[in-house]
Amino acid sequence: MGRGWVLDDWRAAFLAEARLHRLPGTEIGAALAEIDTYCADSGTDPAEAFGEPAEYAAALAHGRGSAQGFPAGRGQLLRAALVASGTLTGVMSLLAGVDAVTREVPATVTVGQLVSVAVGVAGIVGVAAFLLRPGSRRAGGFDWRLGLVVGVGIAVTTVPQLVWKQEVLRASAWPLLGVGLVLLLSAWWPLLSGRLLTDRVRHPATGDEPVPTPGWLLGVVRWGLPVALLCVVLVAVLLGATGTG
């Protein structure tokens, strides 16, 4: 198994399930290498030799005493809820603070913004719960329902801000802006620091990855939100400067 290996449906499902059971990347890579070796020597396919990918991943996790997905994955759901809450509340606070600073008025938070944050957090946790179910990555590919939920969720989080504009909070602009920055940094730091991207699945002999992740994609995942927010803030500042000029 060398550079450029391609995962079939069974191996991709096994890899995802092993991640759910929090097996280290090195152990997942070693298991994939053993699966490939056995299947090549015996002439059988992985499903025939090892059964369902979810069951085989669970057996490996049980053998090493690893936490096993859901309900042990409630900790992962809690982390998803905390990250979602910090990120969405941080974005709301930051943008409200920047808007108030540029217009030199007190910052306000509306009912629609709070509802959008609540709906967004609930949606993210719901998607995480769907993805963290053992057996959700059965060989066969992507579930269309997940894409539908994500699309609807994006639409639903924007509607309340347009409908419910009643003010529920008025605060000084700079403190609210600072709260937003602190929340965003706290929620996003594990990703910005790279800690969540270091446990990679690698071949035990060559160190190659089953599907090498392009460096640009890792950069987008890590810096996409900060760069997008920076662009929004710069546009708001420029528009505010133009309006006051």
Rank of each mutant, 00 (worst) to 15 (best):
V111G: 01
F70W: 11
A118V: 14
G65E: 03
R200T: 14
A13L: 03
G194S: 09
S172Q: 14
L148F: 07
A33W: 00
G126Y: 07
L230D: 04
G151L: 13
L225C: 09
V179E: 11
R170T: 15
L162A: 12
L238C: 12
Y56P: 01
L238S: 14
A96Q: 12
Q76S: 10
G240V: 11
W174Y: 14
A236M: 15
A171Q: 06
L185V: 14
T110M: 01
P160N: 04
W144D: 12
G215M: 05
R137K: 08
D36S: 06
A228I: 04
D199K: 10
L225H: 03
D208G: 05
L218E: 14
R11H: 04
V109W: 09
L162Y: 06
M92T: 12
V235Q: 14
A155E: 05
L176I: 08
G63S: 07
R74Y: 05
V211K: 01
L192F: 10
L217D: 06
D8T: 06
R170N: 05
V152W: 11
F50R: 02
G51C: 07
L169A: 13
M1I: 02
L184H: 03
E167I: 14
A129Y: 12
V168N: 05
V220C: 05
L191W: 12
V227S: 05
